[in-house]
Design a protein around this nucleic acid. Sequence first.
DNA 1: CTGCATCCTTCGGGATACTG
DNA 2: CAGTATCCCGAAGGATGCAG
Lengths: 140, 140
Amino acid sequence: MSRDEVRRRPSNSRASVRRVPGPCARWDDENASFIREILDLVGDKWSVLVIGTLADGAVRYSDLAYAIPGVSQRMLTLTLKQLKRDGLVERTAYPEVPPRVEYQLTPLGTSLLSTVLALADWSATNHAEIRRNRMAYDAG
Amino acid sequence: MSRDEVRRRPSNSRASVRRVPGPCARWDDENASFIREILDLVGDKWSVLVIGTLADGAVRYSDLAYAIPGVSQRMLTLTLKQLKRDGLVERTAYPEVPPRVEYQLTPLGTSLLSTVLALADWSATNHAEIRRNRMAYDAG
DNA sequence: CTGCATCCTTCGGGATACTG
DNA sequence: CAGTATCCCGAAGGATGCAG
């Protein structure tokens, strides 16, 4: 998707009614909620960590809780439930005793993983510069 | 950065002291806060919208407020301040009356833009499937 | 026009206790 | 083991008013 597709003037813009429109187009509600959709997926720390943890294959609930320091049962459960709802992870319950449940990425989830890793690449490349920028800003 | 660099067992792991470690490694605190750093940048709706709006070039404050529906003055100001602190946008104030202030992406901000657009690409490609998944989940 | 300060509400999410 | 249910607090963020 190009930027011009994402950012589009609302059809039959009434901008001039309210004010002189500036040099730039306006995000319409559809695209704003589109952004919201993305952030619901990857704008959340726990989701990212869960997806990253599942990169190697199926992992069971208690191992996820172990692998992700600081996550509460509540948030782990909620995160997994949402990821399953979105079709990013698959849940498999084995009818054993004690019960065993494994989670793994779906192909969709795997494709998201690679995209998120691209973001991690960017961050890894630039976080030193960002830290410098912050220190310079805070010093000035 | 590869996943194995991001996700690394803490040095001299004491995992076996507490419990039998699962099949997967554990995120250490450094990498968890690394994730947090990314999300502070792109996990926020307003930041993403501001960066997207600045894609074409310099935009002044009031035009940003117009271009981004629903943003409050408070959040726009805070978002711009943080983006400036991180060195993603540049602020230029013209000593005129009435005052005029323009914001534009730095090269660093532009590089982040392309990465975020990759995420938008993924979302555009897959959001239909995600919606189907959700509907199927909610129906079942 | 471009903000900053304050109040106030909402709610994400941690802690804890309980269940199949 | 793998969750669910409840309480509760701090932070995010909108609304409003003021200032340079």
